[in-house]
Design a protein around this nucleic acid. Structure first.
Length: 491
RNA sequence: GGGCCAUUAGCUCAGGUGGUAGAGCAACGCCCUUUUAAGGCGUGGGUCGAAGGUUCAAGUCCUUCAUGGCUCACCA
């Protein structure tokens, strides 16, 4: 303990005294019969007279001493309950132990229940034991812990004192378990694929590089799950999904953490439209099972309506609707001018028409997509893993959708490209961009192409950013609020 | 990376125009057998984020740095 202060010193001295008195400050187990909320529920009708029985354990949050008696609030994962200690009930020795307990100590208690004059259900402690000694003082009872830096760096303290944080992460857990339930009910199987990869792919991003010592070679940390899951479709699995961390070597801000949780799912014999329907169904299932019965989520004083059929718009139509620009009437130079008007520093010399269209969409449309909206028909140049549109008119567009909510991209999906020769050409174009200096361009992946050469059935695939979904469902303003241990700079 | 703001006791926060640091909670001691932001009396606790500079004198003014927050740019 480097930053030893007087408060910690006092607790250490107190611990020494307790040890001298024969107390083990770190007990091995405790037969916790009930959680605190179980006790609260089971005995909610208890009157002032003592009745019932409870045996539970948790952390002491507050003590109020009254001479030969005293109260304390005990907190566990499920809730809080008041404890009442009396010298004549627990005996002199135990009562002096109670007086020595510090806020933060973990105790096991058993006793009967009653209700105080002010109607609070309370355990009359008959037996108790110190299970774990706490050495560091907790934040103040009333204001709690406000300092965001400490909350993120020492999330354990944040979780002890700030109940809403625990709620957010319980919701996160529930979202994940309900997703898994939904996927399994629809016959998807959960799989795991490599995090350490020879060739990263499936997205446009700068990767992290790491080194394998005995092989003496570099590996990339995956930036998506895509190409390995498709290999499994080639291998004969027909519906697979994976939920896992991916890593992108980019900036950190309210919506970006270097490692984040991506879910991808692939279904053989399905196309983009099947996946759109499925995705809408799955998210609506989550909305319902997380408890938004109306289908309306409130985020930052804004309502997002997930009920009803979600809007589907081609990228061009979305640009027409929100920016009043008819793409097909404009030459590339005009498109460039539109972009430069929004972003004077844009470098567009090498940009293809498709890239210009996509850029305009990003600049002028995305922020407007508050209620869930599927954007379809993406330019081929920005979609190297998607199949060309089956009714390809003039212009090169692919079967891809992105789902937007609250102006954020929530999901990204394709009718997966399964023509190995087309795939090779797309990779070659990406590789060229990489050589030209685009760090985020995708790389040639010969083994992936080889797998496609064996034949991958027509397949629909979707990726969902889980953290953002959790942010929406928990009204969290920062991705740091939905990741237990977000990345911060070293102190 | 740019701009703006913040950093004072374990926690939450005060500290006009420079004059040797305060409160509440927490802690420690004493009193108190239904309190709940318990109460009463008393005590201790600070390199004021770091390093320089200006000044007789810096928590306060200046510079640099660190960390965090907001925001813009890039990205999911």
């Amino acid at each position: 303990m480097e930053d030893i202060n007087i408060l910690i010193k006092q607790r250490l001295e107190k611990a020494e005294e307790l040890k001298k008195d024969g107390h083990n400050l770190f007990k091995y187990n405790f037969d916790k019969k009930q959680s605190i909320d179980e006790i609260q529920n089971k005995y909610k009708d208890v009157k002032q007279k003592e009745s019932g029985f409870a045996k539970t354990a948790g952390r002491i949050m507050i003590k109020r001493l009254h001479g030969k008696s005293g109260f304390a609030d005990l907190k566990d994962e499920s809730g809080e309950i008041q404890l009442y200690f009396r010298k004549d009930f627990v005996g002199d020795e135990k009562f002096s132990l109670f007086k020595k307990l510090d806020i933060g100590d973990i105790v096991g208690v058993e006793g009967t229940l009653f209700r105080t004059k002010t109607n609070e259900l309370t355990i009359v402690v008959k037996k108790f034991d110190l299970l774990t000694k706490s050495f560091r003082p907790l934040p103040e009872k009333f204001h709690g812990l406000q300092d965001k830096e400490i909350r993120y760096r020492q999330r354990y303290v944040d979780l002890i004192v700030n109940d809403d944080v625990k709620e957010t992460f319980k919701t996160r857990s529930k979202i994940l378990s309900n997703i898994r339930k939904y996927m399994e009910e629809n016959n998807y199987i959960e799989v795991e694929t490599p995090v350490l990869q020879d060739i990263y792919g499936g997205a446009n991003a700068t990767p992290f590089i790491t080194k394998h010592k005995t092989l003496d070679k570099d590996f990339y940390l995956r930036i998506s799950l895509e190409t390995y899951l498709k290999r499994l479709i080639v291998g004969g699995f027909e519906k697979v999904f994976e939920i896992g961390k991916v890593f992108r070597n980019e900036g950190i801000d309210r919506q970006h953490n270097p490692e984040f949780t991506l879910m991808e799912y692939y279904a053989a014999y399905n196309d983009l439209f099947d996946m759109m329907n499925y995705t809408e169904g799955m998210i609506k299932y989550l909305v319902k099972t997380i408890g938004f019965d109306s289908g309306i989520i409130e985020y930052d004083e804004r309502e997002i309506d997930l009920s009803g059929d979600w809007e589907r718009l081609s990228m061009k139509k979305a640009i027409e609707k929100y920016a009043d620009i008819k793409i097909d009437d404009k030459e590339n130079d005009k498109l460039k001018n539109i972009i430069l008007r929004e972003d004077e520093k844009a470098e567009l010399d090498n940009s293809s028409r498709g890239e210009l269209i996509y850029r305009i969409f990003e600049l002028l449309v995305e922020d407007n997509l508050i209620n869930p909206t599927f954007i379809i028909d993406f330019p081929i140049e920005v979609s190297p893993l998607a199949k060309k549109k089956r009714d390809a008119q003039k212009g090169d567009f692919v079967e891809r959708f992105e789902l937007f909510m609250n102006g954020w991209e929530i999901a990204n999906a394709f009718s997966e490209l399964n023509d190995p020769h087309d795939q090779r050409e797309r990779f070659q174009k990406q590789e060229k961009k990489f050589v030209e200096g685009n760090e985020e361009a995708q790389r040639m992946d010969e083994d992936f192409i080889r797998s496609l050469e064996y034949g991958m059935p027509p397949t629909g695939g979707v990726g969902i950013g889980i953290d953002r979904l959790v942010m929406l469902f928990t009204n969290s303003k920062s991705i740091k609020d939905v990741i237990f241990f977000p990345h911060l700079k070293d102190k």
